[in-house]
């Protein structure tokens, strides 16, 4: 190792290169500087990632809002249940929606839920041919021409319906019967028009 130490010392002392071994430190630095400047450390803090994600989300939202090629579907008016009967706005209620157990309730509910009910509004009850007429007095009009099956439509003024129910209730002497009983179908139901189906007469119209 004597030789090694000797050569090491000599090499460490070597400050001048032999001819032909010249370097170009400036040129080397320029290249190195280019590399260093081109690949500077990118700080990857969580907030940077969050910012990137937010940017991507915003761009995505913008892109899909602007570049949506799907055809614009116009809001077509839904087929309204309301019809015009004799020039008056009406509501068509099928008899099976006025369910057997609680016709009275449905009838009053139908009245209640009419959002734009006016005093002149007409409720149209659509009944099948074998269904008993359950609301009287009614005006019978022919079935709509577009309906293939012949149907009879019963029309009654809503306010009249309500009054009619009240009138019938009084005439059948249900005073003292709890109001809930009126809404409950069965043998205790004393309101024949909206109660037990067995009491109904077949519709011969």
């Amino acid at each position: 190792m004597q030789e090694g130490r000797s050569i090491q010392t000599k090499m460490a002392q070597l400050k001048k290169l032999p001819p032909g071994f010249g370097a170009d430190p400036e040129g080397a630095w320029e290249q190195l500087e280019h590399r260093l400047a081109g690949r500077k450390k990118v700080y990857t803090g969580w907030w940077r990632w969050a910012a990137v994600l937010l940017t991507v989300a915003a761009l995505g939202a913008w892109f899909f809002s602007v570049k949506d090629d799907a055809p614009v579907v116009e809001n077509k008016p839904l087929p309204r249940p309301a019809e015009f009967v004799n020039g008056e706005k009406a509501l068509v209620i099928k008899t099976n929606t006025i369910a057997q157990p609680s016709r009275a309730v449905q009838a009053t509910t139908a009245r209640a839920v009419l959002p734009q009910r006016t005093d002149s509004m007409i409720v149209v009850v659509e009944s099948s041919p074998d269904t008993t007429i359950i609301i009287e007095p009614v005006v019978t009009i022919p079935a709509l021409p577009t309906v293939t099956t012949p149907k009879k439509l019963k029309v009654v003024h809503l306010n009249e319906l309500y009054d009619f129910q009240q009138e019938k209730r009084e005439s059948f002497g249900n005073a003292g019967v709890p109001s809930t009983a009126l809404e409950t179908p069965g043998k205790n139901n004393v309101f024949p028009y909206f109660g037990n189906r067995k009491n109904k007469q077949p519709n011969n119209n």
Partner: peptide, 11 residues
């Protein structure tokens, strides 16, 4: 090698 100069060894 000990008798040689640093530059000579380098070469």
């Amino acid at each position: 090698l000990d008798d040689l100069q640093a530059e000579e060894i380098y070469l």
